[in-house]
Write a protein that binds this DNA or RNA. Sequence first.
DNA 1: GTGGTCTAGACCACG
DNA 2: GTGGTCTAGACCACG
Lengths: 115, 115, 115, 115
Amino acid sequence: MDKLLNGNVPIYVQIMDAVKHSIVSGELKPGDKIMSVREMASHFGVNPNTIQRALLELEREGLLAAERAQGRYVAADENAIENLRKVMAEDAVKRFKDEMQALGYGPDEIEKFWR
Amino acid sequence: MDKLLNGNVPIYVQIMDAVKHSIVSGELKPGDKIMSVREMASHFGVNPNTIQRALLELEREGLLAAERAQGRYVAADENAIENLRKVMAEDAVKRFKDEMQALGYGPDEIEKFWR
Amino acid sequence: MDKLLNGNVPIYVQIMDAVKHSIVSGELKPGDKIMSVREMASHFGVNPNTIQRALLELEREGLLAAERAQGRYVAADENAIENLRKVMAEDAVKRFKDEMQALGYGPDEIEKFWR
Amino acid sequence: MDKLLNGNVPIYVQIMDAVKHSIVSGELKPGDKIMSVREMASHFGVNPNTIQRALLELEREGLLAAERAQGRYVAADENAIENLRKVMAEDAVKRFKDEMQALGYGPDEIEKFWR
DNA sequence: GTGGTCTAGACCACG
DNA sequence: GTGGTCTAGACCACG
């Protein structure tokens, strides 16, 4: 019997994920200004420092950029976004396969669920 | 931008899921005695009442049964377990498809990730 | 000589029964809002958790439904209520027959008490 | 919504009832010796004083009698027992009718449950 | 306000 | 020992 996960994914990582989803889904396009730290903090109901950390991390990944006194915008170009989408999809696929395997379904049997 | 999930899956549901996984994976077989309420409580680090609730729910689903002073055991037969496995797999498939769609992949494009 | 019953019907079952009686007697009609958990707890002089358990059980039976922040209401329609009334009556009949049999009255002899 | 009964039938009355049932069912016949106070106390898991009170009450009703150093026996004759049976049955009938009425069944409708 | 979840801990029946 | 019930009380999400 496994241990519980009890939601131990850090909030700032969840924030990063939400922003990434907004980007790959096209809701946010290259160059678009994103919400201010304060706005996001109240939107998600978390501390502004937590938002700060998530956005800094996303800057390091090259997805966002900040311009002093102008706010943050999407820095990734179409190419980078397409890449991100692929990586996130592969992640989802991996998690899915693991889940199916835990249920006792081998790679071949998964096909059955597609027809 | 979606709201955060912030781990709002109730602990008792997570416990139910852990037990179900133990059953469909074959770790627990029909008739097997499961851990006592107190054991599970200390194993998962939660209150015995939370375990109680999860196990009662699983009894209602017909997966477990209790015998006073003897403990609980797996009440589902092979058939019921096979059924549960299928339902859980279909659930996983649905969640996966939703996730892929959120990333902008249509049903057809998902196929690409299998070759 | 039988053992004593010593009132071992759990309180939450007694609560369920009280609510069911209110419903089949027409005191509570389909769609009617019922007392809040806290109100019932103080009305019956028991812990809110005990009420909670009784009401959850009744939800599972489809008699009640809850709307977050709005309270609970009677979810059963006239048909379901009529059905419940029948089931409860058959239960009462069965208990009565058992009691009469314990007193040494066969099914035929019970008729005498009706004229 | 009614108040709960919460098992408020006094234990000594429940004991009386158990003895009466043993008598009308024929398990105990006129003249039969019954269990000692101590035996009954341990059988029912209650205080001997509670048994004492129940048996004294039954003596007052003429059902039992005690003989110093010999124990108690059934003092009622066949006639008295037959009478007791009738009274208890009428009680059961009354309680049953009340229950059915609470469920919304009139005296006539009760007949339906007999065919 | 409402219901939903959870903890901490007690006491019971049963074998 | 085991599961079953109950209390007291906290904290949460939701509107």
